[in-house]
């Protein structure tokens, strides 16, 4: 997805997904498929949790709900803001929104999810990023 992290904080993360014609639903390649927005929310929720919660080893999505507020018809970059709105020992709750990086910034989708957390010393996030940087 070629995601670019723009802001990282305990109260939320902001991520940019550049336009990618492979993710479109139409032959004209201007309408982003809804599934891409869903996948994007799932990923960025994960990032928000790793940032906001200490000592997570891994996590699994329990459920995910997405409202498609309007057609995702644009070739602008997609912006996602996601936050962990509540954490317990075992569960994290997330909320996020998606818009295109264009003047009116109209919201395209909103999502909510919950994750089951596995706590431990070794973080899968560190393992992933280290294996990537060593390549």
């Amino acid at each position: 997805m070629n995601l670019k992290i723009e802001k990282v904080a305990i109260d939320g993360v902001l991520v940019r997904m550049p336009y990618n014609p492979a993710f479109c639903a139409d032959e004209d390649k201007t309408l982003l498929h809804g599934g891409v927005l869903t996948a994007l929310l799932d990923s960025v929720f994960g990032l928000a949790n790793f940032v906001a919660i200490d000592g997570i080893s891994s996590m699994a999505t329990l459920d995910l709900r997405v409202d498609y507020l309007r057609p995702a018809k644009s070739r602008a970059d997609v912006m996602v803001r996601a936050e962990c709105i509540r954490q317990t020992r075992h569960i994290a709750f997330n909320s996020g929104r998606i818009w295109f990086d264009e003047p009116d910034q109209a919201e395209v989708a909103r999502g909510a999810a919950s994750f089951a957390l596995t706590r431990g010393e070794v973080s899968i996030f560190d393992a992933m990023t280290q294996s990537r940087s060593s390549k």
């Binding site: 599934g35 869903t38 799932d42 459920d63 995910l64 709900r65 409202d67 498609y68």
Partner: peptide, 30 residues
Amino acid sequence: ASFMEAVAAISVSHGPDLQPPKPINLTVDY
């Protein structure tokens, strides 16, 4: 979720001239 959305959309409308249905929302249990 994307794969299931694609199959769901096909189950709703399939035919040579039919417009794909517009997704409103989804809930997935993993």
